[in-house]
Design a protein around this nucleic acid. Structure first.
Lengths: 343, 343
DNA sequence: GTGAAAGCGCTAACAT
DNA sequence: ATGTTAGCGCTTTCAC
């Protein structure tokens, strides 16, 4: 078979346990002994058998990553990138990630991820909306959990979010600095924490600049936040006879739908009206004009979650709470100085 | 700790190996003994330790799944779905899938997937274009490999493809049955095997119906197959003064670009001209009109690859060759009976 | 600081 | 058909 700890021990002229101690950096080993062992390892190109270590040490060095299937296969690869960020970070800590999906209508009695049944993970990361029944199941196993872009209704957990409020605030500040005073908010799905956060950011920016919150400029009754809802929300907004010089849309999909409406109604972007979105999806640069938006660091969200998990596992520090991943304003061509502004 | 094979043996009043034999369905066990063991397993809610099995049996029950990072995080979740299909299928065979990405510019000296260094997989599946250096590395490890939607230049391998030629042929047949006789081909990236296959399907369909291949109706000089190349290819085509009544575009992105050009030039779809694409990407239904296309079963491609891998592993049958996953015509609103046709 | 030895939970000959 | 036993490659007391 392949080279084992025994071979290393023999080559280095020490015992098995010494090699083990060197590998695991436990207790103190005489520098020269350590060197001999390390040389032997290098020469033999030795990699400890993960399986044997797991069996002997009672920790699996595996992490579960659970997503609902519809989230994962969405056209916008948000969660794919989150996973990528986590997987990349996991390499550093020598964890394997076992990725699996559960049906969005998961309930008691559904197929349970194998790595849970076999108790083959040290912890699990769940991204996006996951079924409560699954959360309960994992909790019963007493496995540490980290949520990404989600937090279950009951219980206290650690969750990683993007900075929705800060991002929205930055977006609206950008508009204000361009001289806009009549800034509409286009939103939807008011129950979603992200959407709530973004609306709060909108409010905060206005407030900080002593601009009034004009209810008639806020259009967020749609239950969805899609391209279509952006279009119809814009329609409803303008049918009210308002004349905003700028619009903050709660995400890029809605911004895109809104732009479609504006164009069809002969409003020039950004000459007549500026618009900024949120998310920085890939299509943004293909729009005409390219959309100013808030960039979300999806990979970083995954990486942060992974580091948090490792902390919980290794330092036993079970600090509970939210982690906010910073976002960033990306200025493209859909925003310009307000007409008539000469500040 | 948790319940072990020992507990089961004691409870069932048999030896360890009997339990092991029952679990692994090897040799024949008296039906009643088997029943006793199975009852004990059920009662104790016993799951064999995967780790211990791996250590004792020399097979990892893990499969590596490698993608290049840019493929995986594309906006169109093609490979995500392929992976999903493989992962889902893997559950049935009790394999874990270790998913990782490599940079597209991977070369000797790059970071090598950990599961390869640690020899912790029984085989590897690679999807999309993967670096030759990696392929060589895996081959040196003497691990079985299956490719999806790709096949390396040198060496003989098993690859899973979609049925490009059959799909293209079905698409063009559909047009012919609608009475079209002047059918243009819009393609690009002539070096890509998929594009070659699709052009062959176009040819075959014409041939089967005794229609001539008119070179001036073929426009495939663009090195890309994007929305933009679809637009410019259409432009070049029509600037030649031809008047096709239908167009087969080699993928939906090009079809979309082509539609944009047609609309700008006041050609009505499908009244004046029919168009069919290939891929069935999610945006198709949002187009105006919704695009008739060829559906590719992405999940099935992953599932097929996985089953093939399991066969290689378990039956040692190393049948080498291509596997074609069937595709399917999806008729929407972009195709209609040819004007003036009354068959 | 280093070595000896007892497992970790299972499989796989080999006996019976 | 079933039991006995020797590992698989490593970690981890416990001596020295």
């Amino acid at each position: 078979m392949s080279v084992t700890i025994k071979d290393v021990a023999k080559k280095a002229g020490v015992s098995l346990s010494t090699v083990s101690l060197v590998i695991n950096r436990k207790s103190h080993i005489a520098p020269e002994t350590r060197k001999r062992v390390e040389d032997a390892i290098a020469e033999l190109n030795y990699y400890p058998s993960r399986t044997a270590r797991v069996l002997a040490s009672k920790k699996t060095s595996n992490l579960g990553f659970i997503l609902s299937d519809d989230h994962f296969s969405r056209a916008e690869p948000f969660y794919t990138k989150v996973f990528l960020g986590a997987e990349f970070e996991a390499r550093q800590f020598h964890y394997y990630i076992l990725l699996t999906t559960v049906p969005k209508n998961f309930r008691e009695g559904s197929h349970i991820p194998r790595f849970l049944l076999e108790r083959n993970v040290d912890g699990v990361i769940m991204a996006g909306h996951v079924p409560q029944a699954l959360v309960d199941y994992v909790q019963n196993l007493e496995l540490p959990i980290i949520f990404i872009d989600y937090s279950p209704g009951r219980g206290r957990f650690t969750s990683v979010f993007m900075d929705n409020e800060g991002g929205a605030c930055a977006a609206v500040n950008h508009l204000i600095q361009l001289g806009h005073k009549e800034i509409a908010f286009l939103g939807g799905d008011k129950s979603h924490p992200s959407m709530i956060g973004r609306f709060q950011g909108y409010q905060r920016a206005l407030q900080e600049h002593n601009l009034p919150l004009v209810p008639i400029l806020v259009e967020d009754d749609d239950p969805e936040t899609t391209l279509e809802s952006g279009y119809s929300a814009a329609e409803r907004l303008f049918k009210r006879g308002v004349q905003p010089t700028a619009i903050f849309a709660c995400n890029d999909a809605m911004a895109t739908g809104c732009m479609k409406y504006l164009k069809e109604n002969n409003l020039k972007i950004p000459e007549d009206i500026s618009i900024v979105g949120f998310d920085d999806i890939e299509q943004d640069v293909l729009l005409d004009p390219p959309l100013t938006t808030i960039r979300v660091q999806k990979e970083e969200m995954g990486a942060v979650a992974l580091r948090r998990m490792v902390e919980m596992l290794e330092k036993k520090s079970s600090l509970i709470g939210q982690v906010l991943v910073p976002v960033e304003l990306v200025v493209r061509k859909s925003t310009a100085r307000a007409a008539g502004d000469r500040s």
